[in-house]
Simulated assay, not measured.
Amino acid sequence: MNKKEINEIRKLFTPENCSIRRICGCYVDAEKQRRTEIKEAFLSLPELETFKYFTIFKDTLSGTVGKNMINMEFPMAAEERGGAQEFLLNLRDSGLKNEVVVEQFYDKVIESYDYGENYYIILIHCIYDIPGKAQDGTVMEDASDYVYDFIQCVICPVKLSKAGLYYNTEANAIENRNRDWLVEAPAAGFLFPAFNDRNTDIHSLLFCIKNPDQMPERFVNETLGCAVPMSAQDQAQTFQGIVEEFMGDSCSFGAVKSIHENLHELLEESKDETQQITINPEQIKKILENNGAEEEKLKEFEKRYEGFEAQQQEFILSNITNQKNFEVKTPDVSIKVKADKTYLVESRMIDGRPCIVIGTDGHVEVNGIEVKPIEAVAEE
């Protein structure tokens, strides 16, 4: 799913466009015991509650595609009879009205979701009449060709509110506030099936995670039957390692700066694209070659290509390059330049010493104080 498709689904979580038919929930304590459950027609809930739930569902589908929202495909094993895909389809097709299947889902989550505190599992079933689109891209609200029948699962931490004082309006006094168990913003969740190309894709799902560094691997592997992809941070670190290793002695300031510029150009060229922009090992090899990697190092890269491809066939481009800054660090100094202004920074030998030189337009501030241009100081 791309950002536009995700935003289209987010718009369903409003009073005007609500497509939610049913909601089920299970509150689980730190000992993995179920404390309470709900099962309701969503629109039978009090209006204030529905607004709170809308916020939770929209927050789940927030963040960066490829980092917080990850497209996952089911491996062949998960699509076999009795696999995770079949179970999720049964859950969806029941409209969350088959209590046995819903209870089984709760059990799977409780068994595989490693979280040592209280949390709230929320399940919703939705049916969306997908509006057709004219050739010019205009949405035709009354021309629905397909129906997107899906479920969304959200897992929210439940934590005790902080102690404090409050103003009691009835007593006209400042008093101690009772501590309550509050349902917090979603930590993880998923959308199944995926809404790819604005239609149902039962071979994929969209997994959502607030903190990518805390990926619930057992939950993804065992309950969803999917393989955990390389995280955004791991993709960045792996790419950095590839550049350092296979550029070898050619891994100079100028070469790395040029690689950054190559990647930034690719991002700029594709900024109007709705799909994730990825880069594969063959493209990486070409970039290394164009920036001075030795033939011997490129052959080493080719030898490792097959194993590398099996691990991670493609990198998401936005995960391996800083879209905002070009950063230079030494043990004592850190320099940040806008990603498209790398020409302002260069390396030079000055008095036999390697230096990083920053070009200026004459306007310089030091600790917030505007200082005179260097030329003016030199003339004095």
Rank of each mutant, 00 (worst) to 15 (best):
N280Y: 04
N196Y: 07
L88K: 00
H363C: 09
E261N: 11
S144L: 03
R92A: 01
G307S: 07
V100D: 04
F219M: 08
P212T: 06
K162W: 00
L224K: 06
N199S: 13
L165D: 01
Q313I: 08
V102P: 06
S204G: 05
F326Y: 03
N322D: 15
Q276P: 03
I127H: 02
M230S: 14
E49C: 11
G132M: 01
E37I: 13
Q235E: 13
V109P: 00
P75V: 09
S62M: 11
E222D: 12
V109L: 00
K285A: 11
E99R: 09
Q33R: 15
D234M: 11
K97R: 11
N262S: 12
P373A: 04
N90Y: 08
V366N: 02
L267V: 09
N325M: 09
S231Y: 05
A339D: 04
V220G: 02
D272T: 12
Q240I: 05
P212Q: 04
G95R: 01
D234S: 14
G132H: 00
I358N: 04
E294W: 02
V154F: 02
E282Q: 12
L96D: 07
T360Q: 01
V109A: 01
F42N: 10
E170M: 13
K32M: 05
I335F: 02
E222C: 06
R353Y: 08
E47L: 10
A134N: 07
R81N: 08
Y167A: 01
G95S: 01
S347L: 07
N172P: 04
N291Y: 05
R348K: 15
S270D: 07
